[in-house]
Simulated assay, not measured.
Amino acid sequence: MNKLEIKAYRKKHNLTQKKLSEIAGVSIRAVQSWEQGDRNVSQSVIKLLQEHETKLFKESNINAEVFKSQELDALAVDCLNNWDHLMNVPLFRTRMENEATKLAYEMTPEIIEKFRAEWEKSK
């Protein structure tokens, strides 16, 4: 990593020189020396920074999945709360009927019997 790359890394991850020095386990002066091109970044520090970036990437993916899940949950609740209204919208009703028909054609007799048995039990 050269001085431009280390500074770009720090800016990309919104890190201060102090925070970068903590992650790398070095002094702030060492970070300043890297960014000024006075010293080279060691391979062990490069490895630490790569591990840090991997950790951030994994965390961001987990957060994105949680956000997507929450969005879908909210959408499902909204859909259920407005079901009667939605079924009066011709395009929505047609699409729902088409999807239900496709699913019905995909069902095997075993699946149909399983649903029938479950339905009978619920009576």
Score class of each variant (00 low, 15 high):
122 S>K: 13
120 E>Y: 09
35 E>M: 07
28 I>M: 06
58 K>L: 14
64 A>H: 07
20 L>V: 05
89 V>D: 06
74 A>S: 10
81 N>D: 12
4 L>V: 13
68 K>C: 01
106 E>Q: 15
72 L>F: 10
59 E>C: 09
41 V>S: 01
10 R>Y: 03
24 A>I: 03
75 L>M: 09
107 M>S: 03
19 K>G: 03
106 E>C: 07
63 N>A: 12
72 L>R: 12
57 F>Q: 14
79 C>N: 13
55 K>P: 01
101 T>A: 07
117 A>C: 11
73 D>Y: 11
123 K>F: 08
89 V>A: 00
58 K>F: 06
107 M>L: 13
23 I>K: 11
45 V>N: 07
67 F>T: 10
86 L>R: 05
73 D>T: 06
14 N>F: 04
118 E>V: 13
94 T>K: 03
30 A>V: 04
75 L>R: 08
120 E>N: 13
23 I>W: 06
96 M>L: 06
115 F>P: 03
16 T>N: 01
62 I>F: 06
41 V>Y: 12
8 A>T: 10
52 H>D: 08
54 T>F: 13
92 F>R: 02
80 L>N: 03
121 K>N: 09
123 K>D: 10
76 A>L: 15
79 C>L: 14
51 E>P: 00
82 N>L: 02
72 L>Y: 09
89 V>C: 02
52 H>L: 05
95 R>H: 15
90 P>Q: 04
54 T>H: 02
6 I>R: 04
69 S>Y: 11
86 L>M: 12
66 V>L: 09
6 I>Y: 11
105 Y>V: 02
114 K>T: 11
10 R>C: 03
63 N>M: 13
3 K>R: 10
20 L>E: 05
105 Y>A: 04
25 G>P: 11
37 G>M: 00
45 V>P: 00
29 R>G: 13
93 R>M: 00
20 L>F: 02
90 P>N: 01
79 C>R: 02
60 S>A: 14
7 K>W: 04
123 K>Y: 00
55 K>H: 09
33 S>N: 08
11 K>P: 04
95 R>I: 00
77 V>S: 13
73 D>K: 07
16 T>A: 11
33 S>R: 15
99 E>S: 05
20 L>P: 01
73 D>C: 10
120 E>L: 05
83 W>E: 00
33 S>Q: 12
105 Y>W: 07
109 P>T: 14
48 L>W: 07
22 E>A: 00
80 L>S: 06
63 N>R: 07
98 N>H: 14
67 F>Y: 11
9 Y>V: 05
24 A>W: 04
54 T>K: 15
28 I>L: 11
14 N>K: 11
112 I>G: 00
117 A>W: 01
88 N>R: 11
14 N>L: 08
95 R>V: 00
32 Q>C: 02
107 M>D: 01
75 L>H: 06
66 V>K: 09
24 A>D: 01
106 E>Y: 03
13 H>W: 07
3 K>S: 13
77 V>A: 04
